[in-house]
């Protein structure tokens, strides 16, 4: 099994990744091999099996509706690649 470069490009677009031509070809093969391998799950009949999200059963983890102090603008923006005023700065959307 091998993915087409077009399939790889579509997935990359969804994941917001820009791949080089080499990477596209590499992934077409490797993803194909891995996805081919995982097909082995189809050997199992799971029609009556419920899916598991967490192995440990858990429910209703709540917090009360109480405010707690925010970390403050300077801490919030301390790692910003670019800050303007109290905002994170990002470039314009190019149409």
């Amino acid at each position: 099994m091998k993915l087409t470069v077009a399939e790889v490009e579509h997935v990359a677009r969804l994941a917001r990744l820009e791949l080089t031509e080499d990477e596209k070809n590499l992934f077409a093969g490797q993803m194909g091999a891995i996805l081919g391998y995982v097909k082995k799950l189809n050997e199992l009949n799971t029609d009556d099996i419920l899916p598991t999200s967490h192995a440990v059963p858990m429910e209703n983890a709540f917090r009360a509706d109480q405010t707690c102090p925010s970390i403050g603008i300077d801490k919030a923006l301390a790692n910003a690649p670019k800050r303007v005023d109290s905002f994170y700065y990002v470039p314009k959307v190019i149409e």
Binding site: A76, V84, D85, F87, Y88, Y89, V90, P91
Partner: peptide, 16 residues
Amino acid sequence: VHGDISGLEDGSGVDL
């Protein structure tokens, strides 16, 4: 946020 804030002429501000 776009527009009238100085420094945001060429881009946008993100307010969370």
